[in-house]
Design a protein around this nucleic acid. Structure first.
Lengths: 197, 197
DNA sequence: AAAATGTGATACGTTGACGTATCGCTATGA
DNA sequence: TCATAGCGATACGTCAACGTATCACATTTT
């Protein structure tokens, strides 16, 4: 059995590989935030990562798969704790978290590039939309159950409610120069669900 | 007085200039929709417009000013008629209009490129945010007056309400694969303002 | 009709990124 | 210790777009 294959099967992986992949992905994210999808180049990523260009080509076949992996890395974030509080408290906590992420985080920095990339490449679009749908699920479920239990007004559509709440925060990030502050989360819930909910 | 200067002062402009500018701007918009901001090139625009590259450089000094002019052209659209109906009717009409625009229009096609461009260039950002704020004004005013008059629930913030309503529609365009249908406008108003409003 | 000017085409040198290949060098696992 | 990779650097030819400069032709104004 060839040595390389043997290692792949039963030996410990070379730690240099993991390290290379990690610094390259970080540099790629930084580039996406700064330059965007269209102007993204392998050579800038290599320079920023302090890595030889060949090292990137060793691990990714082309620009697009590197971008896809970088976006995937972006989505390693934790959600707020939903194990306690009233439905309204939980919802407010979720929205404050989303607002905080959109004010300042790698995700927020790369969001315009991601939206642009999703528009150009079908695989990235599926990834982007699919991941967002996944992330939205707990929020929609929370709203639906609160409506069903009567905690929230019962004449609401859970999905539309989620779109209105999340949409307000994303809209402020992408279409205005005043990002949504986490402290406004309560006011947003009041405005959408009514202040007595 | 030199002839060129004299013409600039008091004579009729050469119609070829207007025609060139117009076909170039259209081609530039098509390119922005297809390629995006980062990959935008003067040569593609020239080819698409069926125009010599020199003609573009005759009228615009560089890439950025051409993009800015193209985006400006994008914003020549008419708003729905707000001269009749209840506040709720008017609001629903506005939202249905926004939804229709975001489903299919040059604006919708170029929106991801515009968001990306706004993130990279401060002048384009100011333009983008400024124009959106302008467009939003009548909607916010309508909501504010309907809240003040008691037509809408009085415990709402007009601006937040506008962000929730518009945000839902933009969110669906940018973050999901199911754009908002104009027919859903009524349901959206119900969900945000309550069905009895 | 004549003068002026905008136009498309084309050529130019320059630059930056592509993706490949080939170096010694060094970290690694055996 | 030693063979084995993975590494950064660098060079390579290719290509696409940059922004400039000419040119003959067509359109327009005077």
């Amino acid at each position: 059995m060839a040595t390389a294959l043997k290692r792949a099967v039963d030996a410990r992986p070379d730690p240099r590989v993991a390290r290379s992949r990690q610094v390259i992905l970080s540099a790629a994210l930084a580039e996406l935030g700064e330059i965007g999808y269209g102007g993204f180049t392998i050579e800038s990523v290599a320079a920023r990562a302090g890595v030889g260009k060949s090292t990137i080509y060793r691990h990714w076949p082309d620009r697009l798969s590197l971008i896809a992996d970088a976006f995937a890395k972006l989505h390693e974030s934790e959600a707020p704790d939903l194990s306690y509080g009233t439905p309204r408290d939980k919802l407010e906590r979720i929205l404050a978290h989303v607002a905080a992420v959109l004010i300042d985080s790698p995700f927020s920095t790369c969001l315009p590039a991601m939206i642009d990339a999703a528009e150009r490449d079908p695989a990235l679009r599926d990834f982007h939309h699919g991941f967002q749908a996944e992330v939205r699920k707990p929020t929609v479920a929370l709203i639906a159950s609160a409506i069903a239990s009567g905690d929230f007004p019962t004449d609401r559509d859970p999905e539309l409610t989620a779109y209105a709440l999340l949409g307000a925060i994303f809209f402020r990030r992408l279409m205005t120069n005043a990002r949504f502050a986490p402290e406004e989360a309560g006011a947003l819930v009041n405005t959408v669900l009514g202040s007595e909910a």
